[in-house]
């Protein structure tokens, strides 16, 4: 069963992190990737650029139109995700608690089931 763990971040929180906290987060993600690869549950992970780099394409008068900036203006945004193949939802949640962001106030992990996936050759 595939789940995504969305990493919800807040830039105001990130910029207040001490070097030790940044180090702890970096090391924690490295360890998390190693562990889930070892267990065979890891499929992919991506970290995303800032939403100010986003372009939004949407229908305006029946034609696609491109605008700068994110779809939703918000203080928090999705900074990246893990795509995992796990036994059940309980396991996905258990794994989410192991991600270092779960110990930083103001950051959060959102666990959602995948209903369709095509991973290409990967």
């Amino acid at each position: 069963m595939k789940y995504v763990i969305l990493m919800q971040v807040d830039p105001a929180v990130l910029e207040q992190l001490t070097e030790e906290q940044q180090q702890m987060i970096g090391d924690g993600h490295t360890a998390f990737m190693a562990a889930t690869k070892e267990s065979g549950e890891f499929i992919a992970t991506q970290a995303l650029g800032d939403p100010s780099r986003s372009k939004v394409v949407r229908s305006v008068g029946g034609r696609p139109e491109v605008t700068d900036g994110p779809f939703v203006e918000a203080k928090e945004f999705m900074g990246g995700f893990y795509l995992l193949d796990v036994e059940d939802e309980a396991r996905a949640v258990e794994l989410a608690t192991q991600i270092p962001d779960a110990r930083i106030p103001g950051l959060a992990l959102e666990v959602r089931p995948v209903v369709f996936a095509d991973l290409g050759d990967g």
Binding site: P11, E15, Q22, G26, A47, G49, D50, R53
Partner: peptide, 26 residues
């Protein structure tokens, strides 16, 4: 300006460095 710089880069190490400067500034 630091916040704009953090938002503009896609290099994780650079982001981290800029955030650190921003934190020290605060």
């Amino acid at each position: 300006a630091y916040r704009r710089a953090v938002a503009a880069t896609v290099n994780v190490a650079e982001q981290r460095h800029l955030r650190e400067r921003l934190r020290r500034l605060g």
